[in-house]
Simulated assay, not measured.
Amino acid sequence: MEVQIGGLIGLYGGAVMGILAWWFGRRMAKKQRGLDELHDHIWQKARSISWFFTLASIYLLFTFIMFGMELKAPIVLAVIMLVHMASWGIIGVILSINMNMSEPLKPSRVKLGISIVAVSLIIFTILSVTTGNWWFLLASVPPNIIGLIFALTPERSGEDFEK
């Protein structure tokens, strides 16, 4: 059995960085009195919505297996964990921004931006799985960033451009 040092560093280093970021974020929010009922509601709602994305990813992985694709347990668990954590974080950020803006984001823009992210992730994941080259997932980063920016920025009206 071969130990993959980079994998261990990524696995545990990512966990440590995530815990430190979570702790630092909560500390900063506590200083600014941001840990209130609204904060709890937003992140509970985000967590419950992320389970729908997790369920969809499980069904997608089962579909891949039914079509004869051999998937190993670490890959399946990594995909499920990534989908759950990423959707929880993205939805939490969208809800936080939307609740704290003077004018809420338009649901159509948010849905379109999230759709861009989902479609690019699905396409590049299928490309990666079928070719066996995981570098294709890096190609999904630009469309994902564009989709997130589109989803998280309010639509500008003509009055904003005149100022």
Rank of each mutant, 00 (worst) to 15 (best):
M99L: 07
P104C: 02
E70F: 11
N100V: 08
N98A: 00
M81S: 02
S102M: 07
L82M: 12
G89Y: 11
F64N: 02
N100M: 15
K72F: 15
K106G: 06
I80E: 02
I94L: 10
A56R: 09
L71E: 05
E103D: 14
A56I: 14
G89C: 06
V79I: 13
I75A: 09
S108G: 05
P107Q: 01
F62M: 12
K72Y: 14
V93C: 12
I58N: 02
P107Y: 01
S96Q: 13
A86V: 13
V83E: 03
M99Q: 15
A86N: 09
G89S: 03
V76E: 05
S57D: 06
M85H: 03
I97D: 04
K72D: 13
F62K: 03
I80Q: 01
I91N: 05
S108D: 09
G89H: 04
E103P: 07
F67P: 13
A86P: 08
I65P: 04
I58R: 02
T63A: 13
K106A: 10
L77K: 04
K72V: 14
I65N: 15
L71I: 13
F62Y: 04
S87W: 07
S87Y: 12
M69S: 11
S87G: 12
M101Q: 09
M99Y: 10
N98T: 05
S57E: 15
L95G: 10
G89R: 01
Y59L: 14
L77C: 06
I75C: 09
G89A: 01
L61M: 12
V79L: 07
S87D: 12
F64C: 10
P104V: 10
L77H: 10
L105V: 00
T63V: 12
P107N: 01
M101S: 14
E103L: 11
S87N: 10
M69W: 15
A78Y: 00
I90G: 01
L61N: 13
F64M: 14
L71C: 05
K106T: 08
S96I: 12
